[in-house]
């Protein structure tokens, strides 16, 4: 089972600086909370909030891949389902659907839809395991993209939905830069903490054990498939929250949002950041968003994909654990283990 990230000791597996939690987390939290004081609107939303949103989608992948050994490429499709749910059940300006439900019903509903969709994908892809997961989820992601593009009755086809507004309450329009940043930060922090907590819970430990040796876990009496599907459900909830934020951020959703390149971009983010610790996806998202924004000055906007692709290849070759892995390399470790095959 080479999708496994074998670790002898789960607490030591994390990058040293974040393993204990404590100080590093406090510093990070302080920096992120105070960030709006120094950042312009552009840096606040286009860099800050956008990185956090992409990081959350990648976090849902990291939860599956890092702890469960299931590399799912359909997480962005799941986020897209939540986004489409917001557009269909909330309000949009495309004149299709738009039932106008209040946001406090739409959001939980959309997130639940995402969770269920993810669990279904999990149920399908758990029929086989290992490297097959990546193929099946990629096929699902591609099929979802083509379906949303072809189908006008449900998804309004190619144009998708536009004019989706974030809610306005307590006298605040939550898409204004500062409120939106804080909402995103709060949700991202919640997801991050939840993943950290879940990883140490009984469920999380069982999931990691299943990743390392499914046969043994099955023999002990654990329901391997159920654990995987529940993990997919949780990952779907995280992706769903990110999807809601994404659709508020863009104000629109169309098949282009969830196309194959975008879905693979999530995997790139997770791999570049590193999938050993939940901070990895956010780190990867920040790097990718910064590259996306400033590569224009470097090589022109058109060739951005070549740049990110080459960077990705270098990371895969040089450091299987992404940037987190590079970080960890500065500290001597006994027998560095990577995304390599288990014996």
């Amino acid at each position: 089972m080479s999708l496994a990230l074998p670790t002898s000791d789960p607490t030591r597996a994390a990058t040293p600086a974040f393993a204990g939690g404590g100080l590093a987390h406090l510093v990070l939290a302080a920096v992120l909370v105070l960030y709006p004081a120094v950042a312009s609107d552009f840096f606040l939303t286009q860099i800050g909030a956008y990185s956090l949103i992409l990081g959350m989608v990648a976090l849902s992948l990291m939860l599956l891949a890092g702890y469960g050994g299931m590399v799912s490429l359909a997480q962005l499709s799941v986020a897209g389902m939540a986004g489409y749910a917001v557009a269909i059940f909330g309000l949009n300006s495309s004149g299709v659907h738009g039932f106008g439900w209040p946001w406090w019903i739409v959001v939980p509903f959309a997130v639940l839809i995402a969770g269920i969709a993810s669990a279904l994908i999990g149920a399908i892809s758990s029929r086989t395991d290992g490297i097959y997961t990546i193929m099946i989820t990629l096929a699902i992601a591609t099929a979802t993209f083509y379906f949303t593009q072809q189908n006008y009755a449900l998804f309004n086809g190619f144009p998708g939905f536009a004019g989706i507004r974030a809610p306005e309450f307590w006298g605040v329009f939550w898409r204004d830069p500062v409120p939106f940043y804080y909402v995103t930060l709060a949700v991202a922090a919640l997801c991050y903490a939840a993943v950290l907590y879940a990883a140490r819970s009984t469920f999380g430990l069982a999931l990691q054990a299943i990743r390392d040796n499914p046969r043994r876990m099955r023999a002990i009496g654990f329901d391997v498939t159920a654990h995987k599907i529940v993990a997919y459900f949780f990952a779907g909830l995280i992706a769903g929250l990110a999807g809601v934020l994404l659709v508020w951020f863009n104000g629109r959703i169309s098949p282009g949002t969830i196309n194959v390149a975008a879905a693979i971009n999530i995997l790139i983010i997770a791999v570049i950041g590193g999938m050993r610790h939940p901070i990895g996806p956010f780190l990867g998202a920040l790097v990718v968003v910064l590259m996306q924004t400033f590569a224009i000055d470097l090589i022109g906007a058109e060739r951005f994909n070549t740049l990110i692709g080459l960077f990705f290849l270098v990371i895969v070759f040089a450091s299987p654990d992404g940037l987190l892995g590079l970080w960890g390399r500065f500290r001597p470790r006994s027998g560095q283990e990577s995304l390599g095959p288990s014996p």
């Binding site: 080479s2 999708l3 995997l267 994909n305 070549t306 990705f312 895969v316 070759f317 995304l339």
Partner: peptide
């Protein structure tokens, strides 16, 4: 060789480029 996931990731990188 023998590292399925990294091989797959590399093919993804190649396809993007």
């Amino acid at each position: 060789e023998g590292d399925d996931l990294r091989q797959t990731l590399v093919t993804i990188g190649i396809s993007i480029v």
